[in-house]
Design a protein around this nucleic acid. Structure first.
Lengths: 330, 330
DNA sequence: ATGAAAGCGCTAACAC
DNA sequence: GTGTTAGCGCTTTCAT
C-alpha cells in the first residue's frame, strides 16, 4: 500500500484538509510556508494521490472513453493520437477500447467505460448496435461524440467527413481519365460510412450517364485480406478502374494484382480512401481520398471537452475530404 | 448521477450487503429467490456498479497499465492487441500510454498509472529513464513486466526477443549472398534493443572476417522518415546490402531508393526487422526478421497476471526471432 | 441468510 | 489559515 494523504498530514503537522488544499492548488486555505512544508513531505515520500478516491469524491475521473473498431488499422492509431494529444493538453486521459466491429464487444466496452466513470465518450465508426449503447450512455447523462459516423438524424454531436463526396470525387476522377467500367469494393455494409461511400460511387456513375453494374460491386471488410478476397470475387469481371473503400483494402488489391501479374496502373487503375502514410510508400504510390485522422481526433476531443466544461459547441462538424493524386491511376 | 447500490437495495427490499453479495457472485449469503429479486431490479434499472468505489474498497482496479513508445508504429498496436486479448480473458482491462520515447512523458504516464491504481504494469521498449520509474513502481509494490527490452542484469521479469541474434542472422544472410559491404541503420541509440541489434550486425561481420566500416553505420529513429534521412547520410558511401533496424525504416529506404532510381534488390539488397504485415505488400516484399508482436504481448500479459495471482512465473522469457526470406535481397 | 456498520482515500463545507 | 467532519459507492466483517 502506498502512503495516503492522512500520513502526509501527520508528517507535515497539518490537517488533511490543508494537504488537500495545497495539492489541489486552491487559491486560498494555506500560507506559502505551510504549502512548502507539505510539498516537501510529498516530495520526500513520493506521495501519489489515489485517483479512485478522488473520483469517488469529485464525481469526475478526468478520463475520456474512446471506442474504435480496430487499432491495427493505422487510421485509428492516428485518430487516437489526435484525441490523446488534445485531451492531454486539457488534463484528460484516454481509455482506449477496440471493438473489432463486434456488437457484443462494443456493448461490453460501453459498460466497462461507464463502470469506470469516464467523463465522456468518443465513438468512432460505430456499428449498428450503437443506438442502443447511446441510449444507455445518455441515460447516465454522459456526453458523447460520434466520430466518422453519419447519423445526421440523431441529435448527437458528431464530427465526420463527407464520405459520399470523397468517393464521388474519386469516381469522377476515374471517369475523367476515361474509365467507363469501374469496380467498387465496399466496407462492412452495416456501417453508415460504408453506405455513404457506396452512394458516392453510384452518384458519380449516374451523373456521367454510366450504368451501375452490380456485379462490379463487392463487399469487403476494411482489411487487406478483405480487399484481396474481394478481388478474387471480381475475378471474372472486366473493368479498368477500381475504387476500394479504404487504403487497407487497396493494399489487398495491390497484393492480388501482383500474384496475377496485373500491372497498376497500366492494366488497372486503383484509388483508395484514408490516405494512410503507407500509401505514399507503396509502389506505385496510391491515389487516395484524404481523411485527416489526427485532426479529426483532435477536433472531436475538443468538442467533447467543451461539452464537459459546459461551453456550447456546434452539434456537428463536417470535413470535406480531398483527392490526393499519385501514381496508381492511368 | 447514476443509480447506486443503496437504491437497488431499497427497491429490492434487501440490504446493500445482500446486493453486493449477489452482484459479486459470492458463494453464499442469499437465497436463489433474493438473488433473482435483486438481479431483476438491477436489470430493470440498468444498474452499473461504480468501479472507483469498488477499487477504493478492494484495492484493486482490475486494470493493467501499458506503456508503449509509439502507437503509430504498427508493431505496437499488435503488441497491444496481444496484451489486451490475454488480459481480457482474465477479466483485466488495459490502460494504454504513448511515450514517444520522451523521458518526461514516460515519467508522467507512470505517475498517472500509479495514481489510477493499476494492478500492474507492462513496459515496452523502455528508454534510459526507465530505471528511475521502475524504482518508483517497485516502491509502491506493483508488479511490472519489461517487454522487448534487454536488462538481464536487473531482477525484473521481462519478455524479449534476441535482438542481437536476429540481426546477426540477417547480416549473415547478406554475407552468404555475397555482399561484402553492408550498411546498417540503427534505432535510437538510447534503447537497449538498438544496441543489441547493432551488436548482432558487428558480430556477423567480424565472424566473416569483414571490416566494420563506421561510415556505413548511421543512426535512425525507427520511423519511415528516419530511414529516409539515414539514406541521405549514407549517400556518398558505396554498399550493396543494407540492414534497417526495423521495417518502418526499411520503408524509408524503399522510398529513398525510388526517388534516386535505385532498384531493390538489383542495386541494393535490404533487410528489415519486425515483419510488419505491410512488409509482404510492399514491392518487392521485404525480407525481414520476424518478431511475433501479438504473442509477445500475450505472453507478457500472462506473466503479469500470474504475478498478480500470486503464482510464480519464470523471471524472463526469450523469443528467438527468425529470418523471413522474401524478395528484397539478391 | 440477512442487516448494520466500519472503512477504503479523498474533497468540500463548515466551524473556528 | 486551519482543523473537523460528512459524505462519495462500494466491500466486508460481525452480529443476529
Amino acid at each position: 500500500m502506498s502512503i495516503t494523504i492522512r500520513e502526509i498530514a501527520k508528517l507535515a503537522n497539518v490537517s488533511i484538509g490543508t494537504v488537500s488544499r495545497v495539492l489541489n492548488n486552491k487559491e486560498t486555505g494555506y500560507t506559502e510556508e505551510t504549502k512548502a512544508k507539505v510539498l516537501d513531505v510529498v516530495k520526500r515520500y513520493d506521495y501519489i494521490p489515489n485517483s479512485a478516491a478522488r473520483a469517488l469524491s469529485t464525481q469526475s475521473t478526468k478520463t475520456l472513453g474512446c471506442i474504435i473498431p480496430d487499432i491495427c488499422n493505422p487510421f485509428f492509431p492516428e485518430l487516437a493520437r489526435g484525441i490523446e494529444d488534445m485531451a492531454g493538453s486539457h488534463g484528460y486521459h484516454i481509455f482506449l477500447c477496440n471493438t473489432d466491429l463486434d456488437a457484443q464487444k462494443e456493448e461490453s466496452y460501453v459498460y466497462t467505460l461507464l463502470e469506470r466513470q469516464v467523463d465522456g465518450l468518443l465513438f468512432a465508426s460505430s456499428t449498428a448496435t450503437t443506438p442502443k449503447n447511446i441510449t444507455r450512455i445518455q441515460k447516465v447523462n454522459k456526453p458523447i461524440i460520434l466520430l466518422d459516423a453519419c447519423m445526421h438524424d440523431e441529435a448527437i454531436p458528431h464530427v465526420y467527413i463527407d464520405n459520399c463526396f470523397g468517393v464521388y470525387t474519386a469516381t469522377k476522377h476515374l471517369i475523367e481519365k476515361g474509365h467507363t467500367s469501374i469496380a467498387f469494393i465496399t466496407g462492412s455494409m452495416n456501417l453508415s460510412t460504408s453506405k455513404e461511400r457506396l452512394r458516392g460511387y453510384k452518384m458519380a456513375l449516374e451523373e456521367a450517364g454510366l450504368p451501375i453494374q452490380e456485379q462490379l460491386i463487392t463487399e469487403g471488410d476494411y482489411t487487406v485480406e478483405g480487399g484481396f478476397r474481394a478481388m478474387e470475387l471480381l475475378h471474372l469481371q472486366s473493368y479498368t478502374g477500381l475504387i476500394a473503400s479504404n487504403d487497407l483494402m487497396a493494399y489487398g488489391v495491390y497484393k492480388y494484382a501482383r500474384t496475377q501479374g496485373i500491372r497498376i496502373p497500366e492494366d488497372l487503375s486503383v484509388i483508395g480512401f484514408d490516405n494512410l502514410s503507407f500509401s505514399q510508400i507503396i509502389d506505385p504510390p496510391l491515389t487516395t481520398v484524404s481523411q485527416p485522422a489526427y485532426e479529426l481526433g483532435q477536433y472531436a476531443a475538443e468538442m467533447l471537452i467543451k461539452c464537459l466544461q459546459g461551453m456550447d459547441t456546434p452539434s456537428y462538424h463536417l470535413y470535406k475530404p480531398t483527392l490526393i493524386v499519385r501514381e496508381s491511376v492511368k
